[in-house]
Each structure stands twice: as C-alpha cells, then as structure tokens.
Design a protein around this nucleic acid. Structure first.
Lengths: 346, 346
DNA sequence: ATGAAAGCGCTAACAG
DNA sequence: CTGTTAGCGCTTTCAT
C-alpha cells in the first residue's frame, strides 16, 4: 500500500489539489465549493483511506501539533504518572507528545532541548535540570510557548506549575514533631534547585517553630548520581551515627524508597523507633507494612494545568503572558508516624 | 533569534545551498570540495548556530529518525522502565522516541497507530492490544520495520521480544507448591492475549505436575477495565469465598498490588496464612513487609533487544527478516512464600 | 466556484 | 569543484 497523497485524490476526482485541500480542511463552505463536489472528494478520500502526511503539513504550516515533554526520568513513578496525564490531556487538545528523560544532566537536557527545537515542537513542558537556565532563557527569548513543571528558576519570568514545596515540607516535619518524635533528620538531594531548597526551608521552619521540644537540625544531602546502593548505604550510615535520631523526613520519592531499605538493614522499627514521612506517594508507601505517611502531590492537577496553560498560549499566541501556579499538596497520615508509646502530643 | 537555514549560510559564505548541504552532510570529500571552502562553511554554520530543520529533512528524505513506541500504560512501572531503556538505546543509535499509551483499547491503539504512521515514524515498537492484529498485519504488509514486545500474535509472522511466560508462571506456581501451600488460586486478567494464556497454562501445568498434593485449579479473571476499587473488591471476595485457598499467584504487576490491598483488608497474613507470588517485580514487592516472591522480567534486556532488532532492520533495510526472541524470567524468592510465623510484624 | 503556482527547508540528480 | 534545478506533500495567495 503506497501512501495516498492529496494528488491521488485530485487525479481520481478530476480536480486540482487546491480544491481537495480546501475540502479536506473544512473550507468548502468558505470557498463556496459545490456540495456535490465536496461529497465526491470526501468519499474518494475515505475510499482511498487518505491520511495527510503530517511532516509535509508541518513543514508548510510551521506547526507540528507536537508538544515536547522533558522530565527527569520517565521510569520514576512521579514523572511516569505526570507523563501519562500530559499525554492524555494533550491528546484531548489535538496534540501528540514527544517525551524524553534528562537524567538530571545539564548536557543531556541541553542537547535534548535542541533536538526538540529542531523537530519543531509547538510547545514545551519542561522539568528543568539545575543548569538549564540559560537554555530556558533562550526559549523565552525566542518566544517559544513553554511551561516549567515541578521546579522553576526564581529569577526567570516563565510560566510554571509546581506544588507548594515549602508548605509540604513544613507539614511533613510538623507531623513528626506533633507525633512526639524529637530529633528529625532530613534526607535530601544535594542540589540547589528551588524545589529542594524550599523543602529544606519548610523542614527548617517547622523545627524552628517547635524549638522548645525539638532537637537541632540534622541534614543528609545525597548526590543525585549516587547509585541505589550508595544511597542506601549513606542513609544507613547517617542513621547509625546518630542514636538520638527518631524521625526522618525524605524530600523525595526515590530517597524514601532507599531510606526504607536502609532502615530495614539497620534493624530499626519504623513508627515505634523512628518516625518516617516522605514527599511524594507511591504503592510501597501506601500498601507497605507499616504504611508510610506522605506529602502527596496532586500529580494529575499539575499535569492538567501545565497542558491547559500551554494550550492556551498556543491558541491565543499570547506567548508573553506568564503565569505561575502553586498547588498545595495533601498530607496523608499513615502508620509510619504512629508512635504508640507517646499519647500526649503536647 | 530567527531560525537559521541552509540558505542563510549559503548567502553568508557566498556559495550555493547545494555546497552547504554537501559539506554539512559530510560529503565534502566525496564531492571534492576544497578544504578551505569546507572550513569556511563549517565555521559559518557554527557561528550562526545552525541546526537543520528535521521536519524539512524528514519530508525530503522520508526518514524522520523517530521511533514510535506504543505501550499499554506509561504510568505502569513495567512499561515506564521499558520506555526508559528504549529511549536510552534508541538515543545511542541516533533515534528519538515518540511514545503513547493504548490504555489497552483497540480503538485507541488503532488511532494512535495511524497517528504514528502519518507522522512518518521510521519504525515501531509495539505492545499490541488484543484486537490489533489486523492493523499489525497492515504494518507488516506495508513493510514497516516493526518489533512487538511483551506479547505477540502466534499466527502472525513478526519480530517480537517477550519473556518466557509459560516458564515464569510454571516456576511461580511450583514455588508455592514446593513451599507446602496446597490450594493455589490464580488471579489473572480476563483476556485471551497470548502472554496471559501462557501464564495460565504455566500455572495449570505446575498444578498438574504436583497433583498428588495439590488441590484443584481455582481461577479469578478480572476485566481489564475494572477500577482499582472493583479489582480489590473482587479479589477480596474470591479469597473470602474459599477458605481452603492458601496460595495466590498473580499474573501481573497491578493485580499483585491490588491483591495485597485485598489481603490486607481481609485481615489474612501473607506467608503464614497465604502464600503469594506475582509476575513482575516492583518496589512494593521488594521492600514491603513481608516482601513478595516474584517472577521478575529482565526489562532492560527486553528493551535493548527490541531496539537492537529494530535498528538492525532499519540499517539493513532487511524488513522481511523476522526474528522471535523469548527471554527467561528469574525467580526471586522472598518472604511471602516462607511458611512460618513472620518475624517482622512491622 | 475552481485552479495555477509559489514556497516551507532540505537533498541529490544532473550539468557545467 | 560548484551551481541549477526539481521535488518531497501540503497550504494558500492570487487569478480567473
């Protein structure tokens, strides 16, 4: 089956490609093409099973109806779910998604961004790597429709959608304190990215507020490029070195998973000996035993909003409009913060 | 910054676009273009930060250097990990990936497949839905490079990469029997797809073999479109209705997760009261308490092989070559099949 | 009411 | 050695 082109239809019906194009693009009325002819063209197109070559159309119109989605790692459940909803919402708006994973490398992100640009994406949804500011700036300067997600650059005027990281971390650390845990450790990524800084600030602020009873800050920063084994090991060391520690707040999904593994290795009991709260939810936290209290991000809302904003920009060509959306997370209190011995929260 | 085209470079250097194109495509030697001119063109291209418009190139050459990846659901960890490796391997071979989720709907899969075709994907990696045979046949007839993954159509000659589903299920059910569980229930998807049929066959074969001590088959088939709540509920009912049941084999990832939730609701203890084995691994099974014995698929190998085969076809234009790869899974024995009082109640 | 023709950016015969 | 030219499939202005 060779590919049917607009020319084949024109030949078959005995008209010019122009007329076929008009009819196929729903401009029959506008161009006052006779109903009879219109129907014949439509029928022939259907019979030959014609489908427009989107590459050719894209070259001609400059619009590919494709959105570029850059996430940190598509195999991370958080980003996978985000991608799923982005795909679904984009589809509803008539767009296809081309996604890629930065693996949190600036070089990789930069080259992927170039790739996406050369493939003429109509718009971008990006989870930026720490050093991607300049490239994002370029995108903005070139008036490319763009929404950042999960994180952003405070001194760069762009649209973004993110969860309230400060509040989430504040609530998470506060939950531990309220449940009677005294010395709360923070396990975070060694990164100056805004979402991580905010989470650290939220944690610190909660400790500050509960000062009278709480111990001092205790923070472990784990390089992003640590292997899972290294991560588990360094968390285990962190726990072992400080017997005072009776609470842990993990700033992210995969650190929490590694943390549970480390705790298990250490032979310590979650909840009774050490309280645990994690940013981001997943099956393990929800169904594990004991279940883990989390600060859950409204992933679907984040994705929906990001697509909605992007499509709005695309439709209104209102590229200059910038909007920032910060969505509150929800606290899911579960077994990992249930300290049976201590009943009085005071 | 307007987009730099080959024409701009030609004008700047004072040559024709042809010469520029030749140089940029590394054909300077072949076309015996002077080194001096070549360098001037290269330098100008670099200075202007020229990048070829891939859409135009795609239209002209008929090659987009893009691979279409259709999975069931990108938010399912199995497919997310698969996608990640596919992306990585494709990148190494100079291809970009456009992925989409079928949500196991034939209509959706069909329309996505059309979309991908019209976007002129160079090749396809597809996890087909049950009724997609005809469309896959079309692809084959049209000599489109194609590799099926995770499942295939027994009576259709295509390349595919899949795990040994029969063997995996056989090993899984056998593990339960070997550990002393007597009446093993099978929780599977209500589907006639080959991978599910094979898993059911493997289960049945294991029971058959251990007949003397094993009870009869007991199978629950859950429709794919059940909500998570419905799934959990029907598994809980299944367990409650048969007090003899002391072992469960789940044929897939998400059924296992739902099953653990159902078991938890039923107040039954995994391992001591009911043995559990699941096809596919994940964080919950690995780190949950008790941990769950699984039949783990070598996801990375599957993805690597699929890309490798596809790229081979693409390079050798050897579209007719068909190859079928069946990779053995590995058995991960964990606490959920250890019949004894559990040590870690959490 | 319909068609001719130009052109999106690129490649590659063919000419010189 | 380098340029002219045609054309990939489509849209759209302008002409009739």
């Amino acid at each position: 089956m060779k590919n049917i082109s607009i020319k084949d239809i024109a030949k078959e019906v005995g008209v010019s490609t122009t007329t076929v194009s008009f009819v196929l693009n729903g401009k029959a009325k506008e161009k006052r093409i006779s109903e009879d002819l219109r129907d014949r063209i439509l029928q022939t197109a259907a019979r030959l099973n014609y489908r427009p070559n989107q590459v050719a159309r894209g070259l001609r119109t400059g619009q590919t109806h494709t959105l570029g989605l850059m996430v940190e790692d598509i195999s991370n459940p958080f980003f996978a779910q985000l991608a799923r909803v982005v795909e679904h919402e984009a589809d509803k708006a008539g767009y296809t998604v081309m996604y890629c994973s930065t693996e949190n490398s600036d070089e990789r992100a930069t080259s992927l961004l170039y790739m996406l640009r050369h493939r003429q994406m109509d718009g971008f949804i990006i989870v930026p790597t720490p050093g991607l500011k300049k490239e994002i700036q370029n995108l903005v300067d070139d008036r490319k429709p763009l929404v950042l997600v999960d994180r952003f650059f405070p001194d760069l005027l762009t649209c973004y959608v993110t969860v309230d990281n400060f509040m989430g971390a504040f609530e998470g650390a506060s939950l531990l304190l309220r449940k009677g845990y005294r010395k709360i450790g923070l396990i975070t990524v060694d990164s100056i990215q805004v979402q991580m800084m905010e989470r650290e600030r939220g944690y610190a602020s909660a400790l500050e507020k509960g000062k009278k009873k709480a111990g001092t800050e205790s923070i472990l920063r784990i390089p992003y490029d640590y292997s899972p084994e290294q991560t588990v090991q360094s968390i285990a060391d962190f726990i072992r070195k400080d017997p005072q520690l009776d609470g842990l707040f993990f700033t992210t999904n995969y650190l929490g998973v590694a943390g549970l593994e480390a705790i298990r290795l250490s032979g310590i009991k979650v909840a009774s000996q050490i309280g645990v709260v994690c940013f981001d939810d997943n099956d393990l936290f929800r169904l594990g035993s004991p279940s883990i209290s989390v600060i859950a991000q409204p992933i679907a809302s984040i994705a929906q909003k990001a697509v909605e904003i992007l499509v709005d920009i695309l439709n209104h060509k209102d590229v200059s409009a910038s909007c920032q959306l910060v969505i509150p997370p929800t606290v899911q209190e579960r077994e990992s913060t249930y300290r049976q011995e201590i009943k009085n929260p005071g």
